[in-house]
Design a protein around this nucleic acid. Structure first.
Lengths: 212, 212
DNA sequence: ACTAAATCTTGACGATTGTCAAGGCGCAAC
DNA sequence: GTTGCGCCTTGACAATCGTCAAGATTTAGT
């Protein structure tokens, strides 16, 4: 067949094309990360491509070279955000040998998340609200929500397992609870309420042993 | 004193001014209601004053006559929304004589809310997310959140009381749970998931007796 | 080293935005 | 009936938006 004749040239061009695609994807992620910076600061409604470009090392034209659309860019941002977010607690979950250890590790990570990644999380809630209006976002948002639910469930299951128990409520209810608590804490946090983090930790410390 | 001298003229001008102010406030609410229509359909990010005006019986200039600002308009919308929302379940709560009655009444209202006021609620979540970015929204949003928490707590307390019990978790945790569940159901609802409402009802039916 | 393709910059476009000023309409007062 | 004042319409403004095309620049292939 024709396959035989071009093994050498084909192999090379195939490899270079794969490399190019990889580079292309890497660049997209670079741009998405730069965009996330500004999006986290201004929110979806007030963020323009030009503003994103100005707060980064790129010019506004590049974004249109790598993304077909503004929605395309934001979707890429959302997908990239997910990768960082979903495995955040897995290390703690796997390492903990006792309930106390898991509890303290989880609370520590939770506090750090709220303290350091607050802007990223307000963007998450912003985009999830946008998904209620913009169908193009829905699939990605729903998938991330599913993964977050699974993440919380892993923690709770492990916590219950370390006490020889099982969680008393469904994964959906458990995620709803933690998501709601976190959202409330985030709002308090941005209202300069110093009790936002302690209150959240106290609430979780009380609830987790009750449920699991 | 000078008060005596102008009783007649003063009384009239005072009355007419009060009437004018009342009319002014009423008009603001009319405009806010018209704006809520469009906001619920398009969301905060995509709604312009002109679009609001076109979907209503008013022209876009009127809004600037009655509101100093776009934020001023939206704040008025949010405050008006609150009044409708916060007392939604009070009738059911007050009327119910048994736990079953309260449960069914609550579930019925919950389903009706999700079915009929879905757009208004996605706007609520949108604006609450905006409050994480825009300080001008925060005070109103936080107050509504407090009132919603109190509303849920009234229902739960009543439900617990009808069984001679008390809710097993804090008002904040309870609100977080229901808010999270409702938010998730709303997202499923807008994703054309027919199970959104039944699943929500089933979850609440399972959880409420467990907690209260 | 030369050519071609990939990558990036720049500037401009039409549309839309919030805002506001100039003016018209209607009603009440004198 | 005319004057004045709230109420609203209309049109225009500067700014900003997403988008794109044309050209400069860099990179890679031979």
């Amino acid at each position: 067949m024709a396959q035989r004749a071009m093994t050498a040239a084909e192999r090379v061009s195939e490899a270079t094309e794969a490399l190019r695609e990889e580079k292309f994807a890497a660049r997209r992620i670079e741009l998405a990360e730069a965009a996330l910076e500004t999006l986290g600061e201004l929110g979806f409604a007030r963020t323009s491509l030009r503003e994103i470009a100005q707060n980064s090392a790129f010019t506004h034209g590049v974004f249109h070279y790598y993304f077909t659309d503004k929605l395309d860019l934001i979707c890429c941002c959302v997908r990239h955000y997910k990768a960082q977010c979903v495995t955040r607690y897995d290390e703690v979950t796997a390492a903990a040998k006792t309930r106390d250890e898991l509890m303290e590790g989880f609370l520590g990570k939770l506090a750090a998340t709220l303290r350091e990644d607050a802007s990223m999380h307000r963007l998450w809630y912003d985009l999830r609200a946008q998904a209620l209006f913009e169908p193009a976002f829905r699939a990605d948002i729903v998938e991330i929500d599913r993964n977050l639910e699974a993440m919380i469930w892993r923690i709770a299951s492990r916590f219950a397992g370390l006490g020889g128990r099982k969680p008393a409520i469904s994964p959906a209810a458990l995620y709803a609870l933690f998501d709601g608590l976190f959202q409330g804490a985030l709002l308090k946090h941005f209202s300069n309420d110093a009790d936002a983090i302690p209150d959240l930790l106290a609430e979780v410390r009380r609830l987790l042993p009750m449920i699991c």
